[in-house]
């Protein structure tokens, strides 16, 4: 007992990890709930089967054959009992397999059911971040952001998945199952959050060096908050108000940054890296790797390969006194 108690306690510890913002067991949307139900049904049925089998095995091990029994001798009553037991066992096995299969199909119907929603996003997986475009029938209301999706609570949102280089997989465990993003193809998946909150997602298909640092977050909020956020993201960047940020902007515009990054409302028009128009309003930079603070932005710009070795942003030579204005300019792009 002395040994078993701590061992049991240790076994229970990992369960503590399940209550988090990135957990299949912490389901917060219809698709994820279906998956979580399936998980628990499978676990309980299979655990029961396992326990019963183990009990039967132990009983068989304990009950010994009489010493002088003739193995070929048959006894009609035992024979009959055996036939019945085995038929029941086979019947139960078939029943289990068939009902679990049926259940899986039923779950798939729910998972792939298409509900009409007002919102469609195009999410493009790139090594190693997510480009997110909010589509709209009015071209001037279309906008692009990175690594942070906002959705209104309780509404189905259609996500179109594409990839620009290799295969990635979109996975927000608390909201949906996985769906691959494949080059030259468009896959679709719907997500819906039933409760407000912040859910973390992760690329789930190995895609190269920084696969582990290719996260995204989904912020589910009330309709009003969402609309406010959307209006703010549609707008162009507000020109810097103070001198330091003004200088930061000039530095940004004179460096290679503009070849890759876009800041709407300025001359920076690069389309191959995250749109920085409102980078300061996002919770994380570098695909969920660092929190958006001035210090982290500075650290990232000075040495992106120290944070994500092999990332597709080059180390750019900056004078020591250029870092602070640049970081504060970017941090201020709310």
């Amino acid at each position: 007992m002395r040994r078993i108690a701590p061992a049991l306690l240790l076994l229970c510890l990992p369960l503590g990890g399940c209550q988090h913002w990135q957990s299949v067991l912490n389901a917060r949307g219809p698709a994820a709930s279906t998956l979580a139900h399936m998980f628990w049904i499978f676990v309980s049925v299979l655990a029961t089967v396992w326990v019963l089998t183990m009990i039967a095995l132990l009983l068989a091990l304990r009950r010994r054959r009489p010493e002088d029994a003739d193995p070929l001798a048959t006894n009609p009553t035992t024979e009959r009992r055996m036939t019945i037991t085995i038929s029941v066992a086979i019947g139960l096995t078939l029943l289990t397999v068939i009902s679990l299969t049926g259940l899986s199909y039923a779950a798939q119907k729910v998972l792939f059911a298409h509900k009409d929603g007002a919102l469609t996003l195009l999410v493009t997986g790139q090594q190693w971040w997510w480009k997110i475009t909010y589509e709209d029938s009015q071209p001037n209301r279309v906008f692009t952001t990175a690594n942070e999706i906002h959705i209104p609570v309780g509404e189905p949102v259609l996500i179109k998945l594409e990839s620009s280089d290799v295969i990635h997989s979109f996975w927000v465990p608390s909201l949906t199952g996985k769906m691959d993003a494949i080059t030259g193809r468009q896959n679709q998946i719907q997500i819906q959050a039933d409760r407000p909150g912040i859910y973390r997602g992760q690329c789930a298909e190995y895609c190269g060096l920084q696969h582990a640092h290719m996260g995204l977050i989904v912020v589910a909020e009330s309709k009003e908050d969402f609309e406010r956020w959307r209006e703010q993201q549609i707008s162009s960047a507000i020109p810097p108000g103070d001198e330091e940020r003004q200088r930061g902007m000039e530095i940004f515009m004179s460096k290679p940054c503009i070849m890759c990054h876009q800041i709407r409302g300025t001359d920076a028009g690069g389309k191959i890296a995250p749109d920085l128009t409102h980078v300061g309003s996002r919770r994380y930079i570098a695909a969920g790797t660092l929190e958006t603070t001035r210090g982290n932005i500075a650290a990232w710009i000075v040495d992106p390969h120290g944070v994500k070795p092999g990332v597709n942003m080059p180390t750019i030579q900056l004078e020591p006194d250029e870092v602070q204005p640049l970081a504060s300019y970017l941090e201020g792009l709310k």
């Binding site: 792939f112 030259g184 193809r185 468009q186 896959n187």
Partner: peptide, 27 residues
């Protein structure tokens, strides 16, 4: 892939539209 004179080996002809997926013209 897109520079080969013919379609790449691993590139299948466009499939049927199915649940959860569709093929854009680019593919």
């Amino acid at each position: 892939d897109d520079m080969h004179p013919g379609p790449a080996e691993q590139r299948r002809p466009p499939g049927e539209v199915m649940d959860g997926g569709q093929i854009p013209p680019a593919a």
